[in-house]
Design a protein around this nucleic acid. Sequence first.
DNA 1: GTATATAGTTAGATTAATCTAACATTTTTA
DNA 2: TAAAAATGTTAGATTAATCTAACTATATAC
Lengths: 157, 157
Amino acid sequence: MKKLTQSMEDYIEAIYVISLTSKVIRVKEIAKFLNVKTPSVVDAVGKLTQRGLVIHEKYGYLELTDKGCELAKEVNDKHEKVYKFFNEVLGVSDSISKKDACNIEHYISKEAMDRMIKFIKFVDTCPEGYPEWLKNFNYYAKHGKRPAVCHKRSVSK
Amino acid sequence: MKKLTQSMEDYIEAIYVISLTSKVIRVKEIAKFLNVKTPSVVDAVGKLTQRGLVIHEKYGYLELTDKGCELAKEVNDKHEKVYKFFNEVLGVSDSISKKDACNIEHYISKEAMDRMIKFIKFVDTCPEGYPEWLKNFNYYAKHGKRPAVCHKRSVSK
DNA sequence: GTATATAGTTAGATTAATCTAACATTTTTA
DNA sequence: TAAAAATGTTAGATTAATCTAACTATATAC
């Protein structure tokens, strides 16, 4: 089956995200979520329905099929991970990280995705907690130079 | 002036990149570079000409105006930096880094770009050369676990 | 239970990016 | 220098994503 377009990915992801906090899903909510008008949503939902990703009772509620849900989760997962990487590793602000993730999620390769995920894990599982080098990077990014070296004594004995 | 579309950015960047290794630029080369047909190029060049970014002698050569060149460099710079970050920091393969950079260059924010650039610099200006933690990350990405700790003696005296 | 408000749909237009096929110009070459 | 080859352009079609305006269905409120 052909890949979804960026736009269709947005729609299916929106439905998924809305479903996380909302019992029922309506055309209007999707429109609001994505900042588009309702006819655009109807159009998109029609296409997603044809592909068996969404079920839509006319004039009624929407839901994702299993396949649709799976796909939506994949897209959203990329979003979350790119967001986390930009925000937590690179230190990009929340709002910009969100925007960037929104766009990049449609384009980034599996391989790069994998590396970002591993990078986050690498940071999160650092034996000494939040790693020194990342602190130093944040300092560097902010001040344009490394922090003054702290000639700390060896911990080993 | 309105922002260029992704596609227009591709065209202007292509012209710039071709100009780096080629004395003269023709419609056909751009088509080949971007994997599109010549009428698409003619179309795009028309639009870029209207915006004062390109000069095109009918049936002849093309060149970027100063403004066009500046813009093209900006786009290409993003490309280069994203490529470098993916490749050198995240350890993504050359070819995939290139493809990802190609897409992401159109979407990434100034802020994230800035952080990536700083990250690369942070790595490149590490006082001890290629940083230990990045070696460790590469090991981690490859093997799924950190390298066995080397209880090295303190260097300080 | 009818009128009004809200939500959803359809029809038709617009913009952007692409293509193919036909045509025009320029360059090459014999 | 005339024919052939290569390159560039134009016209017209297609696909995708969006919109507005008009219309339809459902829900709500007296």
